[in-house]
Design a protein around this nucleic acid. Sequence first.
RNA 1: GGCGACGUACCCAAGUGGCUAAGGGAGCGGUCUGCAAAACCGCCAUUCGCCGGUUCGAAUCCGGCCGUCGCCUCCA
Length: 485
Amino acid sequence: MRIFNTMTGKVENFEPLENKKVGIYACGVTVYDLCHIGHARSAVVFDVIVRYLRYKGYDVKFVRNFTDIDDKIINRAQKEGISWKEVADKYTNEYYKDMDRLGIARADIEPKATEHMQEMIEIIKALIEKGYAYEVDEGEAKSVYFSVDKFSGYGKLSKKKLEDLIHGARVEVDERKKSPLDFALWKASKPGEPWWESPWGKGRPGWHIECTAMSMKHIGETLDIHGGGADLIFPHHENEIAQSEAYTGKPFAKYWIHNGFVTINKEKMSKSLGNVLNIRDLLEVYDAEALRLFLLSSHYRSPIEFDHEYLKESEAMLDRFYSTSLRIEDLKAFDKGSKKSLTIELKPLVETLKTKFEEAMDDDFNTAKAIGVIFEFIKELNRLMDKKPSSEEEISLIREAEIILRELGGVLNIFHRKAIDWYRDLLHLKRIPLLEEEIEELINERTQARKEKNWHRADEIRNFLLTKGIILEDRPDKTVWKVKI
RNA sequence: GGCGACGUACCCAAGUGGCUAAGGGAGCGGUCUGCAAAACCGCCAUUCGCCGGUUCGAAUCCGGCCGUCGCCUCCA
């Protein structure tokens, strides 16, 4: 397996620190608002990385945190007139609602910053003792800052030079800091703000220290993989490296993985630009599995442009799979003898499917290519079914192929429904103003009309359903309905 | 200003030194069908932003130019 490492800027062979054990830590969300599709992308990417590592036989311990105390949470609480804790709990809950629908598996450990105060305080104390951090008086209490000048490797992840950062002029000047780049490990609390007791009086942790404390507690001093959105490279991950490596003297992570952004009109989706699309709102109109497929249809490091058209295309792709699945379900054996040619053709295709899929995924989690491999195979399956397989042997081989297709889909966590449920779900999602029973009734009436060769009535019914978004397909033995994408 | 990424068909998107440039969507023609739909077959990039260079050979490597975006501030 090969993985692109942000630290070296190269694709490297993946070798965990300890044979098949992999400790992976991904930065989660700050729970102060609903999640947008940028959050969805990051969650989907790391969900697939973990699923694939497990598929490959690695013993994975996956940790993804919640930042549950932070300026944004405090501001939100003041705006809504509720406590910071209520804000954090509410949006943690909303996070799960959205992520569950997207098929994001729970991490093995989902730690919260506020549950690790003691661990953070211990690390900060040690950093002061080692001379990497300093205290600043803030009246009643003290704040603690990390002294960036003391850590020689500062900037190695984001490839930034200290002097460039200082000259960058976008770093705000803060009289309390020795260097404008120094960052807070501990913040003295202002009146009315939440606080925890500490050796420096009442205060709360800075943003970065929680990841150091929680990753070390739950995984160890050196992580196999640390990841998150590309916007976390600087300053968040750079700061994590500084404080963690200063604290342990060991490398903080072996591989750094960062996913690219979701853009709208070619611009990064972000709160400050006001162009965010919530997962919640999108799932009112589009299927969650389609959103997932859309997010996986580009390489995880590339920017991905959002457009309603692209989500429709993803739905069309899924429809193609479920259509094929429905076709397989309807296969019936009626012939004792087998068409040898079909069996001979299918066997090697099934064998290479897995190999090609793994080759794609082994190459820095190339899900776009892997999806290409899957759909190439779907085309072959349909081609073989056009040859009208009729024997037990042929049909069981095709059914077996679908099982493998679904197994590989499982790594991406797609293709998990029964075909009929795909259409039923679309019926509700697309707000088709008909019940399944009503559609069935019309199909029955049409079948009768067709028997009587009353083509006019048959076409009338089919056209009526089409105006409601329902497509009919006449099979040799029955008529099936589908939802128009 | 500093650092970095990207530019492949009508659209999305793989491919990063050598077999016919994956896959999906849209479109067009055909097979099948009462007619459709689905599925399949065929067509749809002799060419990979532009210009040079390296090489027997480049979409892929090097240089320049143009364009788009990102990071340098909270951000997934």
